[in-house]
Structure formats: structure tokens, C-alpha cells
Design a protein around this nucleic acid. Structure first.
Lengths: 339, 339
DNA sequence: CCATTTAATACAAACGTTTGTATTTTTGTA
DNA sequence: TACAAAAATACAAACGTTTGTATTAAATGG
């Protein structure tokens, strides 16, 4: 039943040559004659040969896979980023190992360890919300495993990073709200220790002060990035006489809008809402949601390219941060009715 | 700089014992004394040892990874299924290789070949829309690579399958439309050679005839499963005096509803619409969309479990098809206003 | 036609485990 | 104390490649 996997030695025997020439023939080495190359490739085909990657990689020292660690795969942003990564990584001959942390520090450590055991050539990582210290990552560096950080990053770990322009995205969103006549703009955001939310908050603040509005700390709500978080804070927000809400995520914006509807508060007439991430539902909901598009696919390709460069040039040092531009997509939730 | 990866031989040398005992100690074999086990495990820890999986797997013959091939990862259904698969597969000590076909036959073949090279222990596959012949899969069987088909399956290839109850889902949806007073029910569906659409069509037909409605072939629209497909057929559908549309996917339903809105046709009052898949936006859109929930996560866990059983029992033969129940979620798009 | 370079192939070791068999050490018993 | 039985460990081969070095065959030139 179990037909033994055929090896280069089988091919060698078949042709009366030696395994090393077969190996070289298959990898198109200049050291072997074109005629034998052809013969080898043909019989390999005929005998149904498939290279044993484990043997190859054992000999060569590094695995042909790269690992990716993300909070969760069923988020539009991350699954699109994965598509981008795959687009680069597959043609380059690597394959993708995927690990979800579900935002847990413990699972992040486990993922790193699993990847070390598998001798991945490199890792693309987006840090879990729970993670606040980073020894598990420093370990990687001296193991010779390349690391690229992506979206959720920390400056406490060296190496290339690919992020989107959180500051500017927030700045654009808030500027837009101001220019459409809003003055008291609340901000729903996430865990403040994560760079993405810290930067968006900074953009929010800067846009306000640049336009002569004094920021009010009472209007900033941490850890309110979920749909429930969006809904839960509406009462407080309205009691503070806000006329707009800038949410650091579309889910919070969704929750906010639904709660506003429940309270019969008109969006955008009484309160305008802007989100972040341009989730697929943003365009579809009523009112459609103004949001910041992050270009996840592009971020994936950039991160993957940076990783491959790092692997193949063994260039562990450079600390470059690649900032992907974002784009504000204006929809109904922020257009005042006078338009 | 590049500190050489430490091996079991290093540990052995350190302790003045032999690599084989180290290996057995680390895998908790009964053949080694508890005291030495402890000593080995401690020094392994101390020296920062990480097993070289490639060497291990080369020796053991099979890799510790399982591969998954799906049309695309950024679909709610598939990314949730992956989460389910991971939930089973990681604790069992395997890791996940992921390959997207983008519905292309060629990429499906490539994926299979990449996985054969990697000597994956097994593959979970959801067939690409373009794929209509299956030699590349029959190949796997005699290579000893386990295969579980999942969602998009074909009876032309043996082995376990996990699908959702497409027939029943469609039946429930159409029955619901009939019971809410609809009589001329159109059906938007996908490529008829795919089991999922074939079965949903069958459920649609059966529900109609069971309730004394003569199916009208003119009301069935093949290859209209996209958002555009949903919108494009509305003119034709209305000219045929339909009072309801059952779509084999939520995107088609979305396109249909938006086009109906454009034409000022009231949903559900003039035309009721039901979708399939319960995409995240279905609940959010206006009107909210009645849809069939497929339980992707559960399907993933089942498929993963079936694969692991198959791998570990070497039980290649059984042809069981696991049918996961579905659930109709009734929302506004199908409730007549008289309620 | 022989010497010499170059092209083509063969040889052999190595990557880091695992595992069957052999050997040594310990334990138990008469 | 001697001896068998059991426990613990050592030895060595194997998994399928890759790759540096050695060898043989072919080509070149005087």
C-alpha cells in the first residue's frame, strides 16, 4: 500500500549515475551536462519524484518557511495582510506558517517557540494586546531568525517595522470633522500601550490644537475599541455635549452608531461619527461609515519583502520603519445634512 | 555573532552521556532513569535548546505539519474555519501551512505539490471553483498523505468529507419564504458544478415542490453569486414577477438589495430576500439580511479532527461524510410588514 | 600525439535526530 | 558471593539531501 517515497538515489540508480549529480541536475547547477540534466528531470518527472524538503533544509541549515504571528486571522485587516504576505513569499519559494495569539501573551510566546523549533527563516509579528514585555523576541535575534514587526510594533525590539500612518490617519479624520463644523469631538480608543492607539490619539490631539480647539481629556475613552465599548460610552459622551466621535476602530463606531439610533439621535446631523480600518461593513451600513483605509494588503507585501531582504542579505541590523500612507474615505456618517 | 544552534549532542557532551539517552530523556522515554531525565531537561533548558524539527521529522519520516488549501483566506467563512482547525491542530502538536488558490486550478495543483514537498502529514482542502478534474488529488493517496475535503468537495475523490447541510439550509430558507406568503421565488446561485450550489439548488427545488409550487427554471440564475451578480439580475427577476429571492450567498443578496433600493422597490414588502453564509455585514445592513449560518468554526474543528484521526490511525479508507447542521437566522429582509 | 586545461561526474561527509541492538550497570535472589 | 534478570545507557545506522574534494573523461593546443 504505502509506496516508499522515491528519492534522488532512486533516480540515480535508474540512470546509473550518482545522487550528487542528480541533486545538481535538479537544481540546475552549471556543473552538470545539459543532456544529463534533461534526462534526470525527465525521469524525476516520470518516477513522480518530489524533493524531501526536510532533508534539504536539514542539510542547508534553515527551513524554507516563514512564520506569521497575529492576534487573529478572522479580522479583515489581518487576513488581507496575510494575502499580501503570501503574494511575496510563495513565489520566493517560502511557505507560510500561521499562528494566532488571540491577543494573549502566553500564546505569543508559544508561537515564537513553535517557530524556533521549526527553524523558520523569519517571522512576521503583530504584537498581542496583552504583551508588554519582550524577552521572547530578543531571543530570536541571536538565534539568527529574522524578525519583522508589523502594525502592532514596539521600539523596544530592534529590526524593520511596517506600520500604517496612524498619526496621519487620525489627523485627517479629525481635521475632516472640524472642517465639517464640529467642535467637541470625542475619541474612543484602545489599550494605550499599543503604538497604534497611542499614535491615533496623538493625531487626534494634534489636529485639535492645530485648529485652535483645546483638547478635553474627558472626551477620550480608553479601552473602548469593541462594538460594546462603542455603545457603552454614548450616554457619557452625549452628556458632555459632543457633536462628533472619532473611533480608533470601525467596530466601536458601529456600536456607537447603533446606540445613537436607539436613542433617536441623528447621525450625522446631531453627532458625526468616523471610524478606522474601513471594515467591509463600513460601506454597507446605514448611514455608511466614514473611515480610514489602511491598505492591509500593501502592508503585507512590504513586511514580507523586508523579511526576505533581511533573510537573504543576513542584514540583521537596520532599524528602518516603513510607514504606509492611509486614506480617509468620507461617507454619510460624517457629512452634515447642509451638503 | 551567529551562535550555533545547540543540539542534543551538545547536551550529551555537557553531561558526559550519549545523544541517544538525551533524545530519549527529552521525549520522556521509560528507558531512561528519572534522575538523568531531570538533569537532561534542566541543562536543555539552561543551554537554550530547541529541538530541530527538520532533523526529527526527516528521521521519523513525516512532517509535523498539516496543510490547508482554500480559495481565499479573507472570507469570513474560511478564516473562521481556519480558526477552528487551529484550535484542534496546535494542541495536537502539528502546525499549519496555508495556501490560497484564489479559485484557480493551477494554484490548487501548485499548493498540493508544495505540500508534498514539505511532506505534510495531511491536507485539508476546499476545492477551487475552477477545478473540475482531480488527478492531482488521487496522487496524494498513494503517497500516504491524508486528505480531508471540506465545504467544497467532490465525490470523485475518496476520503472523509466535512460539509454543511446545504440542502437543508436552502430548504429552510425557501420554506420560510413560502410560509411568509411568497409564491414566485427566484434563486441566485453559483457555478452549478460545485456541490454547495448544486445542493442548495436541490433544496430550493424540493421546498417548492413540497409546498405545491411548480419550480420555474427561468427564475434560477447560475453564476450570479457576487455582489454584481446580485444587482445585475434584478431587472430580469422583477420582469418575471418574483416576490422573493433566495440567494446562495450573502454578497449576491447584498447586491440585490442595493439594486432594489435604487429602483425604489421595497424590501421585504415587495420583494423578500434571503442570503446564505451569515456574513458579518448581514446583521448590520439595512434592512438586516435573513441568512443561513454555516458554523464555519465547527466545520474547521471537525475537519481537523477527522484529519488527525486519519493520520494517527492510518485509516485511509473510510469515506464518511460529516454533515454539519445549519440554522436559518430570520431578519428584516424577509419579514412581511403585516407582522 | 601527448600534455594540459576544462568539463563532467563520482565519492564521502555532514546536517540533527530517532531507534533497534548491544553493552554495561544495577538490582534481586538463591 | 555468585548469577540471572532487569534497568540504564552506549553504539551505530539511518532518514534524504547538499556540497567540498577527488577522480575520470573530454577538449584544446602546440
Amino acid at each position: 500500500m504505502k509506496s516508499h517515497n522515491i528519492t534522488i538515489s532512486d533516480i540515480a540508480k535508474e540512470l546509473g549515475i550518482t545522487p550528487s549529480t542528480v541533486s545538481r541536475a535538479l537544481s540546475d547547477s552549471p556543473r552538470v551536462n545539459d543532456k544529463t540534466k534533461k534526462k534526470v528531470q525527465e525521469t524525476a518527472q516520470k518516477m513522480g519524484y518530489h524533493q524531501n524538503v526536510m532533508a534539504s533544509m536539514l542539510r542547508k541549515g534553515s527551513s524554507g518557511s516563514i512564520g506569521i504571528i497575529i492576534p487573529r486571522i478572522n479580522r479583515h485587516f489581518f487576513s488581507n495582510a496575510i494575502s499580501g504576505i503570501e503574494r511575496i513569499v510563495n513565489p520566493a519559494g517560502y511557505n507560510l506558517l500561521i499562528y494566532q495569539t488571540e491577543e494573549l501573551y502566553q500564546k505569543e510566546v508559544e508561537g515564537i517557540q513553535a517557530f524556533m523549533k521549526n527553524r523558520v527563516a523569519g517571522i512576521i509579528l503583530s504584537i498581542a494586546a496583552e504583551t508588554t514585555h519582550f524577552e521572547h523576541l530578543n531571543n530570536l535575534q541571536n538565534k539568527g531568525i529574522a524578525l519583522v514587526q508589523f502594525d502592532r510594533v514596539t521600539d523596544l525590539v530592534h529590526g524593520p517595522k511596517v506600520i500604517n500612518d496612524n498619526f496621519n490617519g487620525a489627523y485627517l479624520a479629525v481635521k475632516h470633522l472640524i472642517q465639517t463644523g464640529h467642535k467637541r469631538i470625542a475619541h474612543l480608543t484602545g489599550a494605550p500601550h499599543l503604538n497604534v492607539y497611542r499614535e491615533r490619539l496623538r493625531g487626534y490631539m494634534q489636529a485639535l490644537t492645530d485648529h485652535g480647539i483645546q483638547p478635553d481629556q474627558a472626551l477620550v475613552f480608553d479601552n473602548s475599541i469593541t462594538r460594546d465599548g462603542g455603545a457603552a460610552n454614548i450616554g457619557k459622551i452625549m452628556s458632555l455635549n459632543a457633536d462628533a466621535i472619532f473611533c480608533a476602530g470601525d467596530y466601536a463606531a458601529l456600536g456607537a452608531i447603533q446606540e445613537l439610533k436607539n436613542l433617536n439621535i441623528a447621525v450625522p446631523e446631531q453627532v458625526a461619527v468616523v471610524g478606522y480600518a474601513n471594515e467591509p461593513f463600513s460601506e454597507i451600513m446605514t448611514p455608511s461609515l466614514t473611515s480610514v483605509e489602511q491598505n492591509a494588503f500593501e502592508m503585507g507585501t512590504r513586511a514580507a519583502q523586508a523579511l526576505i531582504d533581511m533573510i537573504e542579505n543576513k542584514d540583521n541590523a537596520h532599524d528602518h520603519t516603513d510607514i504606509i500612507p492611509v486614506r480617509l474615505i468620507v461617507r454619510q456618517s460624517s457629512l452634515v445634512s447642509t451638503y
